[in-house]
Amino acid sequence: MRSLIDIVDLSIEEINDLIDTANDIIENPDKYSEKCQKKKLATLFFEPSTRTRLSFEAAMMELGGNVLGFSAASNSSAAKGESVSDTIRTVCCYADIIAMRHPKEGAPMIASMHSTVPIINAGDGGHNHPTQTLTDLLTIQREKGRFDSLTVGLCGDLKFGRTVHSLIHALSRYENIHFVLISPEELKLPGYIINDILDKKGVSYTVTTSLEKVMPTLDILYMTRVQRERFFNEADYIRLKDSYILNKEKLTTAKTDLCIMHPLPRVNEISVDVDDDPRACYFKQVLYGKFIRMALILKLLEVE
């Protein structure tokens, strides 16, 4: 029984297999529509989410399976003080696979230690969000056709942005990747990611505070939201929330085949006038997220 807690739990070969399956699902959806009949997915969301939870549920439904779960800690026994391990032991009695989001870092790992069914980390605080990374990788593969020789701009909240951390982990394993880290001083990428991943693996990167300056060099621009829920101090959030806003004007110097990504939800960091630009890929990214989650559910349930 396998779980997915961190993107590095998957080898490059396994990621490639998932992407192949997702592409096959996109081409031949009917082939997969009954693969998970009589299987149940529990979505345990101790923290609010729109996309991730609905994406998991839609993925399971399109595989012919069923879903159950809760969408806020207040709707579960966690509100009565139940531990994560007890909740998981209980849910294992009802479901064949569990997707879990929790505000505390490491909660899905605790869950996997006590579970008899596969656990999928659907986001643990500011720590990991591996299925978003798989979504991002499928998007890059479909839009750019490769994972190597890319200049990848990561812009916004690089300190608390878990999607950014996981994506750096994943892309660092490919050849000739150059990261451009664009953020205000206060939201720079944490030192441990720079030291333990980029420096250790010899991955090249540039640190800048100016999006405009680096725009012409980018193959991918990954925008992130400055997340209110990651701040202890409201004043810091308000001061930093509008740090980087992408609009049509800033895109005038960008490559014609730039791929603009965003894990969503956005607040105002991508102006709506960018939505019609053919380089905007963030809503396609949402759709790809469902397909890669279908592929992951099949893999973890060992459905052929």
């Binding site: 391990s85 505390k104 870092e105």
Partner: peptide, 21 residues
């Protein structure tokens, strides 16, 4: 000591650290 870590709220859990460097 990370207040965002699950160990800050989950009772009776082993605090485990791994040598990474």
């Amino acid at each position: 000591k990370n207040p965002r870590c699950i160990t800050s709220v989950e009772q009776e859990i082993d605090h485990i650290f791994k040598l990474t460097d």
